[in-house]
Design a protein around this nucleic acid. Structure first.
Lengths: 339, 339
DNA sequence: AATGTCCTTGACAGCGCTGTCCGTTCAACG
DNA sequence: CGTTGAACGGACAGCGCTGTCAAGGACATT
């Protein structure tokens, strides 16, 4: 175990006071370049690392960012963590992950943790981005937070999102451009705001193309494989079936794919299938899934940035929220409509 | 923002000194039951939560457990986190997740984090469980750690694992019992110790049944969908093909499934496919995958427990390592061998 | 030369808690 | 009845750092 070296050691080594060392460490202004260099040399020579507990006890920063999630998709969760960490590390911040169980008492889970760890900020992932109890607890404790892809109440706090409506629109257009006229749609989990926006994009594209949206072509799903599977069974059950199905996320699209395989439908010759998210699973099927790449890591990184910069909404000023770009990923599961 | 209440407030409220409050909080002995109750009442009344930074600065515990991972499987990572958190929460500990990029300088990633955050312990997931640089850094800094499913050097530190060899053996037996005699095997990532053990189980079962293991029936994989896909192409390429394929993890088994679908092979009538891990993906195919359920959450929970109990190996004493139970999950992807 | 202003630096007081050490009480013992 | 030691409670000194405040020096202004 290497001996613990403190700021005092650095101060002695470089011949200044500990306060000056602290200044250099925190990139405060008004330190002579010469002094700064000496301190930095000492830091490097001693391999000194400031103790985070002491910093957060004495100062106002905790160097800790929380990530709350209650998301069934592990790929999504991991991507958020990866994206956030990448940014945090540069600034010496660390990530505390806290799974929240929405089915249990949320207040009991959130309140104690907020009080013990005074985190500098929290990243909320859907569906927690819209959870009233979580938002209220955060606000009560005065902990800044950024919501990823929230569903509504957009002025309440800063957020990072992508244009789900446009993405839904473009995917639908992609299908229409391939000659599809009879397209089925599976709506996502109603608690996720993105679900409604994707659905709206579908509606907009169909309307614009003058195509009818039959009631029996739209099913409610829950973002799970099973719900996609069941929706597909209904959609493909009769002899009169759509030539394409657009599912609001990949897991559900995979469910559709499973039904298609089971019915021995040729994808995409007889049925085109489109997903959304570009999770790892999208490539784990044959044919690979046409989908929308969500910039999950980028969104999480942006959220972490906003938190570290101490996002504080000035009264009346708009939150510095950001809309990131998505990308249509066309693979093999979509093709020309059968004639 | 609720006013910050400290240990002093509790002490005043309950009419004792702060030290006594501290004793109650830390469940130290030698406090009269009556006093303890008074203090606890005050804690509850004031809704007091000890500040974790102050605790770790003053004391020896940091109330922080790290989880290091560099695992391509998001399902695995999330399960580990969930399992560890469940235990940590009860004890007031929190989880710091740190993805490690093995392709970059590992020392640079690990050393600074160990110095700034003095974590009470670290949970290592494969393949990091066997990473020499990580282990060395942890030991140098005197941070206790528990390895999940390490590959070798078992006496070096405590670990939690499952009997991969036995699981590999039992899955192979399952196939043999279904009448399969010509079984293909895809080995896992060579950096993961579990890969070798699963392979050994396969060999043992085949030998025991007096079945030949043909060289061209065993392929090296990397635990990824793609590597499973490629291995399956080789295995199923000729006219002479095995009646079953046992892949060392689910992702690779899904790759095999994709090849089978593409070749229009009927699973399991013409080809049985077995996986390993029971990741969410195992249910995301049709037919669903026969696989081995790894007690990932339980292993992570046990690891967290060991860390929190301050696992310290006494000189000469065996580490309190634990082997947990697995479960064979038979679904639809395996069936009787074609006659 | 005197004054004002900025830049640079340091002394010092905690942040909220635990570890150490010591004093007090009280029961059981010789 | 005095003695001992366990049980119990408290005073105090930091843990390693940052915030505050003020001092000293450099430089520009009058």
């Amino acid at each position: 175990m290497s001996a613990k070296i403190t700021i005092h050691d650095v101060a002695r080594e470089s011949g200044v006071s500990i306060k000056t060392v602290s200044r250099v460490l925190n990139r405060e202004p008004n330190v002579k370049a010469d002094t700064r260099d000496r301190v930095q040399a000492a830091v490097a020579a001693l391999n000194y690392r400031p103790n985070i507990s002491a910093r957060s006890l004495a100062g106002s920063k905790a160097y800790l960012i929380g990530v709350f999630f209650d998301n069934p998709s592990p790929g999504y969760v991991t991507d958020v963590q990866l994206g956030a960490i990448a940014r945090c590390r540069q600034e010496g911040y660390h990530l505390i992950v806290e799974p929240i169980d929405s089915t249990a008492d949320v207040e009991d889970q959130v309140a104690p943790m907020l009080a013990t760890l005074r985190m500098d900020g929290v990243i909320l992932t859907p569906p927690l981005s819209d959870h009233p109890v979580v938002l209220a607890a955060l606000e009560r404790e005065g902990v800044p937070y950024v919501r990823i892809a929230p569903g509504g109440d957009m002025d309440r706090a800063p957020w990072v999102s992508m244009d789900d409506r446009l993405a839904g629109y473009e995917m639908t257009r992609h299908l229409i451009d391939l000659g599809h006229k009879d397209i089925g749609f599976i709506i996502g989990h109603p608690d996720h705001g993105a679900s409604h926006r994707r659905h709206q994009g579908f509606i907009d594209a169909m309307r614009e193309a003058g195509l009818a949206i039959r009631d029996d072509r739209v099913e409610q799903g829950w973002f799970s494989f099973r719900s996609g599977f069941e929706a597909a069974e209904k959609l493909l059950g009769g002899s009169d079936r759509p030539t394409a199905i657009f599912a609001s996320n990949d897991d559900m699209a995979l469910g559709v794919m499973a039904v298609a395989n089971r019915m021995r439908l040729d994808v995409p010759a007889q049925l085109s299938i489109a997903g959304f998210d570009d999770t790892p699973g999208a490539r784990i099927t044959w044919p690979q899934l046409t989908t929308v790449r969500q910039p999950i890591q980028a969104m999480a990184g942006a959220a972490a940035d906003m938190l570290m910069q101490g996002v504080e909404r000035e009264a009346g000023a708009p939150p510095p929220s950001r809309l990131l770009d998505f990308e249509l990923v066309v693979r093999e599961s979509t093709g020309r409509a059968p004639s």
